[in-house]
Structure formats: C-alpha cells, structure tokens
C-alpha cells in the first residue's frame, strides 16, 4: 500500500507540469499557432522561478512565508514565460514565418541561455540551481496536527509530494475550461484556429486573438516549467527532461480538449513514474534475463502515443487553420 500511495502521489506531481503545459499548447494551437516551443517556454519559466526562489531563500523572506514566496515564484515563471512566448508570436503572427522553425529556434535558445546565465550568476561549472528546502506544503502549513501514522496511505498520498503548483494547476485547469468554452473570448479564439477568414469577416481581430493564444501558452508553459522542476526535486539543471515535447504529445492525445488532456496527462505521468520505479513495483513483469528493463518502460508512453495516433488521426480534431499564417489579403 505504501508503494501504491507513493506511485499515485508521484503520478499527480508529474501530471501537473504535463497538464499545465499541454493546456498552454492547446490555447496556442486552437488560436491557430503551432507551438513546439513549449519545452523552451518551460525552461525559461523554470529558470526565472528558480532564481526567484533562490533570492527569497537568501533574503530570508522565503523561510518566513514559504507559500507566499512560492506563489510569487510561480507568477514570475508565468510572466517570464509569457515574455518569451512573445518571440514566437512576433515571428509567427507579425512576420508570418514558419511556425515550426520559429519554435525550434526558441527550443534551441532556452537551454543554452539557461546554462549561460546560470554560469554567469553562480560561477563557472555550477550548472545546478538548488531549490530551497521550504517549498513543500506540509500538515503544519495547513495548521493540521502531526500525522498519527506518517507512513499511512493517505498521509503519503496527500502530503509526501504536495506543492503549491498542484493547487495552482487545479485552479488553472478549471479556468482554462471556462475560458475556452464559456466565454466570448474562448469562442473567438477557437474561431481563429478553425477559420480565421470567417472570424475576421465578423470583426474579430485574428492577430490579437492569436497573440492571446500564444501568450497564454507562454504563461502556462512557464508555470509548467517550475512545476516540473519542483517535481523532479534535484534543482534546476537547465532542462525539463523533454516534458515540453511530452506535453505536445499529451495535447494531441487529448485531442486539443481540456478534459481529455487531463486524462492524457495522468496516463503519461503514470507511465513515467512506473518507468522510473519499475524495479520496486512487484506487480510489473520483470523480463528475466533482460538488462536495463527501465528503458522498455520509458519507451512505452511514446509507443502508445503513436499507436493511439494511428487510430485517432482519422477523427482528429486538430484546429483546421493551425500552422497557417493568417494573411488578411488572402481572404
């Protein structure tokens, strides 16, 4: 039972970045801009938030009000991610550039920039930004008494890996759903990804809407970045373990819809956790005689994605106008 609780709570903590980032990708693509720069946006957001947390730790503010400090760091991650996403928006919307290539540039830029800046600030060769130890939400934070049984199922499930990012993700997930489906803004955004010419003809500013989509993806991507770093637990090392690309798969797997994206992110996170802990999970097949079996499990989510794509691509609900720069003149 302890193992199950561990696996479940780890799944939640790793599903959080996937969910946030895939939702970000969803906003961008439903407005019509392909965003393969999610990985880069995560890295930039995580970089900014990690330095913020480090500064709070040094000033003593963090230890005094840990969750407030964490909230500010999350906000910083989102805003810096947003700022970074402007680069994609500018290339894709104003200059009508190839969106995939623009995104590739951002993906190349982000980790390099993170390493260079970390070197410059921390000194030569110090490439890890250590996260402070006060980030976790404990029973104490919530004013609860000490657990009677610290190794109990529910205590592990709820408190072993409980961070503010999880709470933020729940709020942002609900907000994303409401914004996309229950507001005028969401309807207009979706129209720009399906048929921008029609949207324009009824007076919607396609460029503005697409910028909004890209900026939201930068915001969510940045927050996803710090959520991943917190989940990974060993500090920020100028990468997010390919979660940005995984989130892209989650988004497609989730058919560009919030609830299916939620399901897909849990599915992927579960696979990732199982892959990482396969040796301690007794119910998994062991493949006697095979070495480094973890590789097999790590491969699985990608293989399954491909299989699912084969069966769903016929009914794919990809935004019809994604990837095509909108040109007013071609209406």
């Amino acid at each position: 039972m302890t193992i199950l609780a561990n696996v479940l709570s780890l799944t939640v903590i790793f599903a959080v970045p996937l969910l946030l980032v895939a939702l970000g990708g969803m906003f961008s693509e439903r407005s019509g801009v392909i965003n393969i720069a999610l990985e880069g946006m995560m890295i930039i957001g995580a970089l900014a938030a990690s330095f913020t947390l480090q500064a709070f730790d040094k000033s003593g503010f963090g230890a005094g009000a840990p969750q407030l400090a964490m909230f500010v760091a999350i906000l910083v991650a989102g805003l810096v991610g947003m700022l970074f996403s402007l680069l994609l928006g500018f290339a894709a919307i104003n200059l009508k550039a190839d969106q995939t290539i623009g995104g590739t540039a951002l993906n190349q830029f982000a980790p390099a920039f993170a390493v260079v800046l970390t070197w410059a600030i921390q000194g030569e060769g110090l490439t890890t930004i250590q996260l402070p130890g006060w980030l976790r939400i404990t029973r104490d934070t919530l004013g609860l008494p000490e657990a009677k049984n610290p190794q109990g199922f529910f205590n592990i499930l709820f408190f072993k890996y409980f961070y503010l990012t999880t709470v933020v993700a729940v709020v942002l997930f609900i907000a994303s759903y409401v914004v996309l489906y229950k507001t005028k803004f969401g309807l207009r955004l979706r129209a720009c990804g399906e048929h921008p010419q029609a949207a324009d003809s009824v007076g919607i500013n396609v460029y503005k809407m697409r910028y909004a989509g890209v900026l939201i993806s930068g915001f969510l991507g940045g927050i996803g970045g710090i959520a991943y770093t917190v989940a990974a637990g060993s500090g920020f090392t100028s990468n997010v373990g390919g979660y940005g690309f995984l989130a892209l798969a989650v988004m497609i797997f989730g058919n560009w819809k919030p609830f299916t994206i939620l399901g897909a992110s849990f599915f992927f996170a579960l696979f990732k956790v199982v892959a990482a802990y396969n040796s301690s999970l007794s119910f998994l097949p062991k493949f006697e005689g095979l070495r480094e079996v973890s590789n097999l499990y790590q491969m699985l989510p990608y293989v399954v994605t491909m299989l699912v794509l084969i069966f769903t691509s016929k009914h794919s609900q990809a935004p019809k106008a994604e990837g095509i720069p909108y040109d007013k003149g071609s209406r």
């Binding site: 290339a91 590739t104 951002l106 830029f109 390099a112």
Partner: peptide, 17 residues
C-alpha cells in the same frame, strides 16, 4: 560553450522568416 547555441538559435530564428 552554450553561448554558441544562443548564436545558432538566433540564426534559426532569423531563418524562420
């Protein structure tokens, strides 16, 4: 050495348009 990757990323970005 990653400085080079920044230079390269700028080059890719400019190639995009």
């Amino acid at each position: 050495a990653e400085t080079i990757n920044i230079v390269i990323s700028v080059i890719i970005y400019l190639s995009a348009f």
